[in-house]
Nucleic acid binder design. Structure first.
Lengths: 312, 312
DNA sequence: CGATCTTACGGGATTCGTAAACATA
DNA sequence: TATGTTTACGAATCCCGTAAGATCG
């Protein structure tokens, strides 16, 4: 049973079965006629029976050869299908990639990047989880996502993290707010004003509290979505501090922004993936594409503004 | 797409996919570990992508490898099935053979021969056409029967005939009939008695008429079946002349038989098959079996008597 | 350091193509 | 005799196993 049949043998057999002529079948297989002949001979010897009745004038399948031809064609078809699918994946014409990333990245930076990627690889299905850092990491850990872009440096035996971006923070306030007139804004300058916070499980909130400790800000309210923060700020109810990647929410008339040059207030963002398994070709290509187009620190605001045009 | 994949490569791949260990998979494939390694490497190179993530401690399928594993297993299963079926046919454990032969042979000689064949090859399906010579030949010509045993020497560009048997004829009459007392029975001795003929399209009738020309026998009646002839003869209505192969019909009390040693009255029987196509392995084995057990002229009556016990 | 995969390399088997021999209509 | 298959044989290639090298836990 441990027989070494090659697809070339099967193809030669099928070709001869169809053409019923050694010379023409040999040409079809890009072989000399004699090599083709011994190929068939070897196949028959391996199988232990004759597949063709042949004279110098006539070649035809035996009864057993006729049965084998059906199987051989089926096997070759299946093989070609499998190879075709594999080739499509290798050529990035088909596949699936899933990434988990922060909502601000998903809404502000990702769309333009993903649009370019999809234009180049329309056959690759992309799945996006736009969720907070912790769930992002969890999706990678349990295999739901191929990789994540999150604010957690998840270096574990399972996970590998590499720097993706460093995000600076901006003050956002209603136009004409008193803070905007100061030559420089420092942490304690924020204390007198009502502040719109994001919830405590966001990385933004955590970075902000770490940077202002031990000062206590005046909390107007605490919300989950940056869009809500924007609404509050635009209405003049309070001020807030948001990372550059989220600035696109605030580029509206009536809102002013100002970069905060606090050395301790910089959000590190990482690309996180599993250590033990390689990415699928599709996921790897998406990862490469994304890494090549990650936001540059000095131009953080610019691509955000560019992408804003797309999502409005 | 013209890629030369061998089943050994596929088997090695599947083995490694299951065992996730080069060393053990190499053993399972009866290869050295290094040969196995380069086999996998070659397969990956041929396909143009990596099938396994491997370190010195851990081997696992890539996403693409996982997809290919499913296809490979399916292909191997199909291949094994095909090879298994072919091997069954080569081992004569399965197959089909069909033969057309004269009713007298089918009823008298064939059963014991076929019983032995079936005992040895229970998986081979045998189809029997028990019909007259002309239809026998026709069945071979149109492919319904693999070969025929008939009284026609069918030597055409399409058909090949080889001698199978020479059949002698016997007088059959009611016990105590006057003819049985003669020292020798000659053609003209039959003329005074009522004669039970077989129909004109039987070879028996044709041989008999050729041997008695230009004499005209006294026809009592003309029937199609030898069993009917027997009934008539046993009832004393008439006499008849039948070939040795049909004598088993007449081995009954009340009927006597006598060999007619007329030189011109010998029926030649041929095995007829197509020239252009070889027999299937099953048909060839049945043909060989049958040729090895064909009735011997001098003992014509003996196997008939023996087989008669089986069919009564 | 030990287990495991990869690379290097020589020998043997396989396969190829050219050319001659062979077979059939 | 013409067409087409098989056989003979030297050359190139492929494949295997031994042994040394590299790598990860």
């Amino acid at each position: 049973m441990q027989m070494n049949l090659s697809t070339r043998q099967l193809r030669a057999f099928v070709a001869l079965a169809e053409l019923r002529n050694f010379t023409r079948a040999a040409v079809a297989c890009h072989l000399s006629q004699s090599a083709f002949s011994s190929l068939i001979r070897t196949l028959e010897d391996d199988l232990g029976l004759r597949l063709f009745d042949r004279s110098t004038r006539h070649v035809d399948l035996t009864v057993e050869g006729r049965e084998f031809a059906l199987s051989a064609q089926r096997v070759l078809l299946e093989m070609d299908t499998a190879l075709g699918q594999l080739r499509e994946r290798a050529a990035l014409e088909r596949g699936k990639a899933s990434l988990a990333l922060l909502p601000s990245l998903a809404a502000g930076w990702l769309p333009a990047v993903l649009a370019g990627y999809r234009a180049q690889h329309p056959g690759i299905e992309v799945e996006v989880f736009d969720i907070l850092s912790e769930p992002c990491i969890e999706r990678v850990r349990n295999g739901q996502a191929d990789f994540a872009i999150a604010a957690t440096r998840a270096e574990t035996p399972e996970l590998r993290a590499e720097p993706f971006h460093t995000d600076e923070f901006h003050l956002v306030a209603h136009s004409g707010h008193a803070l905007l007139a100061l030559p420089e804004v420092k942490p304690r300058d924020l204390l007198p004003f009502d502040f719109v916070h994001l919830s405590r499980n966001t990385s933004v909130r955590q970075y902000l509290e770490a940077a202002t400790l031990p000062l206590q800000m005046r909390t107007l309210l605490e919300v989950d979505q940056l869009a809500t923060v924007m609404g509050m700020v635009r209405a003049g109810l309070g001020i807030s501090v948001v990372p550059a990647l989220a600035l696109f929410h605030f580029q509206q008339t009536g809102i002013a922004t100002r970069l905060l040059k606090w050395p301790q207030l910089r959000r590190a963002i990482y690309l996180v993936r599993r250590r033990d398994r390689s990415l699928s070709l599709a996921a790897q290509s998406l990862c490469d594409w994304i890494m090549a187009r990650r936001p540059v620190a000095s131009e953080a605001a610019a691509p955000v503004a560019a992408s804003r045009k797309r999502i409005d």
